[in-house]
Nucleic acid binder design. Structure first.
Length: 599
RNA sequence: GCAUUCGUAGCUCAAUUGGAUAGAGCACCUCACUACGGAUGAGGAGGUUUGGGGUUCGAAUCCCUACGAGUGCACCA
């Protein structure tokens, strides 16, 4: 049992003994650093029942603890706050427990599985900054849930069909193919496939806008021009051809998508993201029609005179929603109903999570409500991990207006920034690195900076992306934490050279305050993992890793490790440092960030 | 207009879910280097938590209200 639980149990016992017949839900909070002690018990909730002053209760419980608890070494009462100090023997014991547990921070299996769906790109343009937040969140949440003892299945649904990809296809046909039928390729253009197709998507939009402008100039109302522009009509024709399976159209579609996938794969590989199963919308977009039938039979849906199908969710505080068009074709909601069933049939996960931006909050409320009404047994365990948009200092990103930050460009910039910073900061520490090792290191640092920057913010919140801050290596950043890891590893290497023992339990000794604080922080790790899991919040882990790294730097500054002459203290500090470096590695690992040995 | 999310230091974010004098980073001003890795540490300044009410021992957090911002309200996905 950890120290906090011991103290909580002891306090519960003290209340039962001191105030028979009374009880209270004992919850400790960490003591604020301006007061002495590590844990604080708030006595206010007891005052009413006991009819005593808060400070009086605090004194009584404190005195009882000092006498009866095995771990409490001192206490003080400030107003109604009972601050409890823990004995060094208890801290040392705790440290030994942590060190002896190779699975520290990996929680026992829940015997349950979770599906996390994320990334879900469109195949008409390369990934941008917004996708990066999505990918990093999805990947990190998957790792956090795995650490919480769940079996995790990572999935991605690729939007590989529809109007958007036809736009790129048409533009490619018109502007990217010469008279003899030879088209531009990623090789001939010297571009990644996803960027090449993105180029044609932009070209389409330009030409389309020009047509609209021309028509409006000739007196056509704007709305009509948007619908009747020749390019738009051609796109719709192309979509119909695709749906009919026209060989030429399908061949073009396959070719362009193949280029895009090659581009995506390169990006995924670089950011270290992978999936257990990828679904393609071209295979799933017709799903859901039998769900509509089922809904009609169960009386959950109803058919209008024009034969379109609807659901009335006004009782749930939502609206009426279309689930099938009057011509019998599916809408987005229909597909999602079908796909959700499909995913459940494939994996039978106890829970399903979607990492999707908050502009779709309403869609998911409706989706979940429908599935509940249809009586799906899994419907109670669906969760939309809704995250806020990423804004630029200049405002919102808009793909059509060219104000997006491209993912590949951004990654390269942060890697370059890490490389540039190393020129004056690393000074000789990388002397024995080959060029290849250096490149790997800068990749680790640049990506670490970027991932940490995007993950340290509460997922639900909209956040601002500042390009200058994102490549910063100082303060609350990924590289700051990576630096602490490299720093500790350096000390440990030096200790090994000096033949100092780095194994074995720590003997009882007196600890400095900062050392107690570090053991305390270490001991909190499993709890933070659990909290991050229930809240689906990598930001909790980011916050924790930073706190731990910062505390280590304070410790490092105040106390010497290798120059310590007392062999017991030397050993304690080394074991403590080692444990911190391992915990930093684990925590950063949950964020998908690697930590270097040297930097 | 209706629904919904949000508003914390100059800027970007925290605040253990209702607990103490609201904390970090950046930027600004000091200080500490023969360094176990200075990509560091210590300190200063910076706040009526958008304004106004309410709930209670106690509110950035819960309720009401005004103001401001985002998002959604397609037989698009």
């Amino acid at each position: 049992m950890d120290i906090q639980s011991i103290v909580e149990t002891d306090i519960t016992r003290s209340i039962a003994e001191l105030y028979p017949g009374n009880s209270c839900d004992v919850q400790l909070t960490p003591t604020k650093k301006e007061f002495e002690g590590q844990y604080t018990f708030v006595t206010f909730p007891l005052t009413k029942a006991l009819r005593q002053a808060p400070a009086q209760i605090g004194q009584a419980i404190g005195a009882w603890l000092l006498k009866n608890s095995t771990v409490v070494s001192a206490f003080n009462v400030v107003q109604g706050f009972l601050n409890i100090s823990i004995a060094d023997t208890a801290w040392v014991g705790l440290l030994n427990d942590i060190v002896a547990n190779p699975n520290f921070g990996i929680l026992p299996t829940k015997e349950q599985s979770v599906m996390v769906e994320f990334s879900s790109p469109n195949t008409n343009k390369p990934l941008h900054l917004g996708h990066l937040r999505n990918n990093f969140l999805g990947d990190s949440v998957s790792k956090i849930l795995a650490a919480n003892g769940y079996d995790v299945v990572k999935t991605c649904i690729v939007n590989d069909r529809g109007v958007h990809i036809c736009k790129s296809m048409l533009a490619y046909k018109l502007f990217g193919t010469d008279a003899s039928g030879h088209g531009e390729t990623p090789e001939s253009a010297g571009m990644k496939g996803d960027h090449l197709i993105g180029k044609y998507y932009v070209l389409f939009d330009k030409a389309y806008k020009a047509q609209i402008e021309e028509m409006v100039g000739q007196g056509t109302p704007k709305e009509e021009a948007e619908k009747k522009a020749p390019l738009m009509l051609e796109v719709q024709q192309m979509l119909r051809l695709w749906e009919k399976g026209d060989p030429e159209t399908v061949a073009l579609w396959s070719q362009l998508n193949a280029w895009v996938y090659a581009g995506f794969d390169a990006t995924y590989k670089r950011i270290g993201v992978s999936f257990d199963k990828t679904y393609y919308e071209s295979n799933t977009y017709l799903l859901g029609k039998e769900v509509v039938e089922e809904g009609l039979q169960k009386g959950v849906f109803y058919r209008k005179d024009d034969s379109s199908v609807w659901i009335d969710l006004t009782e749930e505080g939502l609206d009426q929603k279309l689930v099938m068009r009057s011509d019998g074709t599916s809408v987005y909601m229909t597909q999602d109903l079908g796909t959700t069933d499909l995913k459940y049939q494939d994996f039978h996960n106890n829970r399903q999570i979607w990492v999707v931006g908050n502009e779709q909050d309403y869609h998911f409320n409706v989706l979940f409500a429908i599935l509940r009404k249809l009586g799906r047994t899994y419907a109670e365990a669906l969760y939309h991990l809704s995250y806020g948009m990423v804004d630029l200092p200049t405002g919102k990103m808009k793909s059509r207006e060219g104000t997006v930050v491209d993912a590949d460009d951004l990654i390269q910039e942060t890697v370059d920034a890490a490389s540039a910073a190393a020129d004056d900061a690393a000074k000789g520490k990388l002397e024995d690195f080959s060029e290849e090792e250096k490149a790997t290191l800068f990749q680790t640092l640049g990506l670490g900076a970027l991932k940490y920057y995007l993950l340290k913010v509460d997922p639900q919140k909209r956040m601002q992306f500042n390009p200058t801050e994102s490549v910063d290596l100082h303060g609350n950043t990924g590289p700051y934490i990576q630096y602490v890891h490299a720093r500790i590893r350096s000390v440990l290497r030096k200790a090994a050279e000096l033949n100092v023992v780095l194994e074995g339990p720590v003997a009882a000794t007196q600890l400095d305050e900062i050392e107690q604080q570090l053991v305390f922080l270490l001991s909190q790790y499993p709890e933070r993992v659990a909290e991050a899991g229930t809240a689906y919040a990598p930001s909790y882990i980011a916050q924790y890793a930073y706190e731990l790294a910062k505390a280590f730097n304070q410790f490092y500054d105040r106390l010497s490790i290798l120059k310590e002459t007392d062999p017991i203290k030397l050993h304690t500090r080394l074991i403590l440092s080692k444990s911190i470096s391992e915990t930093i590695q684990k925590a950063m690992g949950l964020l998908g960030i690697e930590v270097p040995e040297k930097m």
